[in-house]
Design a protein around this nucleic acid. Sequence first.
DNA 1: GACGTATATGTAGGTGCGTCGATGGCGTTG
DNA 2: CAACGCCATCGACGCACCTACATATACGTC
Lengths: 123, 123
Amino acid sequence: MGTALAEMTMPQISPLAGEPIEKHDAERLAGVLKALADPARLRLLSLIQSAPDGEACVCDLTAPLGLSQPTVSHHLRILTESGLLEREKRGVWAYYSLVPSAIGAIADLLTPPRKRGAKRAAR
Amino acid sequence: MGTALAEMTMPQISPLAGEPIEKHDAERLAGVLKALADPARLRLLSLIQSAPDGEACVCDLTAPLGLSQPTVSHHLRILTESGLLEREKRGVWAYYSLVPSAIGAIADLLTPPRKRGAKRAAR
DNA sequence: GACGTATATGTAGGTGCGTCGATGGCGTTG
DNA sequence: CAACGCCATCGACGCACCTACATATACGTC
């Protein structure tokens, strides 16, 4: 359950580039995408990114989302375990910030280096 | 339930660029990402993309995935309704192909034009 | 027109996920 | 040291989703 992202970016799998991806790689990529595929979590990433210092604590995030504190904490946990967020505890507060190029790595996985064949010679 | 992607790429929302995204935009983007966040559907996209002419019919996709025909048809429906696939029926067969720049559009939404503030002055 | 194939739809079961209230740990403040 | 605030975890509820079996529709063939 660690950073599933790091395990993927290393071998640099390109699901939509060359040959079909294997079942195991598909499951890992789906796991990271599943962490992103939630309105509350997308808004959390956006809120944290646009915060004054690029970081925010839980208490600042519950109100804008209209969700309870345990729910917000739950989503932050999922984002952190996926490698998208970093958590730093300072005193009573837990500050979350975006992992610099984590989302960019996902975007790179979705955009293959070069479009191959796929020119739809059909009909 | 048409192409949720087209509705997003038009106003060019950048969830991770400027200010926090609204609830409605987050739900739409999450909807498209949710269509991607499934191992079977990722493999379907990969299989179709790497097919000889960039297209494939259902009968060619059931075996590699190890899923039943109705299940594969179900996933293809979801991908098509999300704007990621195109469907063209020729005779008895239904040929599916990737919408040229659909996934690229998602990648662009995830990679903001320019990294703003967010320089983590923490600690 | 009847049969077989290819695909889509309907229905149902099993599982996972989002949300909340309640609880407990931990640091800060009075 | 006692009280308060911040945060994570737990248990539970409800909903959505994945999958399969059965059925329905469309097309080509004999």
